[in-house]
């Protein structure tokens, strides 16, 4: 009991940050599932979402700036796909990866240019920034909101994928582009849909994530992006439930490690985990076999 009381704040923080990683990780895993591409720019899109919130809230009320953040982020995600990935549809996979790395640096540098290299203060968003008391732990409302919202969104997403026509099209395209085209599926639209969902969830994730931080810098997307990517690999890249479970495990472990007083090792833990998975079970917890799409 004493142990739990002492570690409750860390456990709560872990669940919360796990949910935030999950919202980012879904974008990685879905894009990988359909394009076999690791979208290195995804973490930076997440960072841009935070900057949009910062700038939007300086002039606009929250009920405008949050939807605006979601819209701008989705448009950015779709634009990146159109400009940087779509022209390379038939190119070797390595070319697309390099393009993704290019986009990542481009977004970071654009952010550097726009912010002038100054950390931008993230606004306090009412309700989710409110302080609450849970047992022995004092925390922000976002800690409770995140896991609930994450689970609702993941549930909705699974419904979309498993029980709608576009979802069926997405699963088919993940199997085989050419045969999907033969069925009359517009594969490019399905891919856009994937980027739309990934970017939207990343934008929601950014609102939740940055509520716990004071400011945003151009590299703010790198670390959570990387953690979410590890979560996706851990869960079995391509699998949505895998990414979500992986994200929660990583979030919780990281924070428990902090609770034990080994804060300096909490990041190292995540990357050690990545290495261990890649050695022991490269397909992750729920990964498909080594079915490489040609």
């Amino acid at each position: 009991m004493d142990f739990i009381n002492k570690n409750l704040p860390y456990l709560l923080a872990g669940i919360s940050v796990g949910g935030q990683y999950a919202l980012i990780a879904i974008g990685y895993t879905m894009v990988y599932g359909i394009l076999r591409l690791i979208n290195f720019a995804h973490g930076d899109i997440f960072m841009v979402a935070a900057l949009v919130t910062v700038y939007a809230t300086t002039t606009m009320p929250l009920y405008v700036s949050i939807p605006l953040t979601l819209i701008v982020t989705v448009v950015l995600g779709l634009a990146v796909e159109r400009v940087a990935y779509k022209p390379l549809r038939n190119a070797p996979r390595m070319s697309v990866m390099i393009s993704a790395i290019g986009v990542s640096y481009l977004l970071q540098n654009l952010a550097l240019y726009v912010t002038g290299g100054l950390a931008q203060t993230y606004p306090a968003i009412p309700f989710i920034s409110d302080t609450i008391q849970i047992g022995s732990a004092t925390t922000k409302m976002v800690t409770v909101v995140t896991p609930i919202l994450t689970i609702i969104l993941v549930f909705a997403l699974m419904q979309l994928i498993n029980h709608t026509k576009i979802g069926m099209g997405m699963r088919a395209a993940a199997n085989d582009f050419e045969t999907s085209r033969l069925m009359g599926i517009k594969v490019d639209n399905v891919i856009s849909m994937t980027f739309l969902i990934g970017s939207l969830l990343a934008a929601i994730g950014s609102v939740l994530y940055f509520t716990n931080y004071a400011s945003v810098v151009p590299t703010s997307g790198a670390m959570p992006g990387l953690k979410a990517f590890v979560a996706a690999v851990f869960g079995g890249i391509g699998s949505i439930p895998g990414a979500v479970i992986g994200a929660f495990i990583i979030g919780i472990c990281e924070n428990i490690i902090k609770g034990l007083g080994w804060t300096t090792f909490s990041d190292a833990f995540t990357f050690a985990l990545l290495i261990v998975i890649l050695i022991v079970k490269p397909t992750g917890l729920f990964g498909e076999g080594a079915t490489d799409k040609v």
């Binding site: 088919a172 199997n175 050419e178 045969t179």
Partner: peptide
């Protein structure tokens, strides 16, 4: 077209 090698969707 019923493609060469059937090409049904294995996960569906």
């Amino acid at each position: 077209l019923v493609p060469e090698g059937r090409k049904i969707f294995p996960d569906l």
